[in-house]
């Protein structure tokens, strides 16, 4: 594939003596859909937090399109085009779904990318919601976020990221807590986004779904990278097998 969009070099992070991430290095190519798997507590969310500036690494570097973004503030990293979802979705509860999207649309990044156009923000927000599977002509986009079911909130979270017009999208366990049918309807959205050229880094517990769409998968265990291969081969890897069998069967049953 083409140029490298994200390059991680020797990342380390300790939490009070517990090693959360140990010497992790990898690269993400432009247009790639990279999966990251690992048993519970293997440091996946910490890795996302490190990449997006919510946690500062103890050592190591993160380069985004050749620029060193290690230790930058989260909003600066987002400004450069990396959007992320949160595992625990916490929308802006008192605002309606489409108003939730006004907030990223208000950022200087989006206004710059849209050439200063701002008056049509409501339409853009509704379009974005339709993109992630909200029913356009229903009342759902106008409902207060606190009254939406979990599956919608997860997709609202995805729309919040897309509003930013990202070049790299990081999904932190987007499918967790979603029902089978919700996953089935969200999967094509992600495939489509990737098909349109968006680079996606997907941290996921639902392996079957992930393996269906990912180009390449990295496995973590106890904070270290233990495998890096195409999805078809990753479960053949002895270290990965041991990591999953050694802890739990989660993800296999999805």
């Amino acid at each position: 594939m083409s140029e490298t969009i994200l390059k991680v070099e020797g990342l380390n992070k300790n939490f009070g003596g517990v090693a959360a991430i140990v010497d992790v290095s990898f690269e993400v190519k432009k247009g790639e859909l990279l999966g990251i798997i690992g048993p519970n507590g293997s440091g996946k969310t910490t890795l996302v937090n490190l990449l997006t500036g919510f946690v500062k690494p103890d050592s190591g570097r993160v380069f985004y399109r050749g620029v060193d973004i290690t230790g930058k503030k989260p909003y600066k990293i987002a400004e450069m085009g990396i959007a992320r979802t949160f595992q625990m979705v916490k929308p802006f509860y008192q605002l309606s779904a489409f108003k939730n999207l006004i907030i990223p649309l208000y950022s200087s990044r989006v206004r710059r990318l849209r050439g200063g156009m701002y008056g049509d923000r409501d339409d853009v927000a509704i379009d974005l919601l339709e993109d992630v599977g909200f029913e356009r002509d229903s009342f759902v986009p106008y409902k207060v976020a606190s009254s939406l079911p979990h599956g919608y909130l997860k997709r609202l979270e995805l729309a919040r990221c897309l509003a930013l017009r990202p070049e790299l999208l990081i999904l932190d366990e987007l499918f967790s807590g979603m029902s089978m049918s919700e996953v089935a309807s969200t999967l094509p959205i992600i495939e489509r986004l990737n098909g349109e050229g968006l680079t996606i880094l997907m941290v996921e517990h639902r392996l079957k779904e992930l393996f269906r769409i990912a180009h390449r998968v990295i496995a973590l265990n106890f904070g270290s990278k233990i495998a890096d291969s195409p999805p078809g081969e990753i479960m053949e890897n002895e270290a990965v097998k041991a990591a999953y069998l050694g802890s739990e069967e989660e993800g296999e049953d999805a």
Binding site: F15, A20, G41, G43, T45, T46, N49, F54, V55, P74
Partner: peptide, 10 residues
């Protein structure tokens, strides 16, 4: 202080 701003634990 152990209070770390904006830190999400594993």
């Amino acid at each position: 202080g152990k209070f770390k701003e904006l830190e999400e634990r594993v």
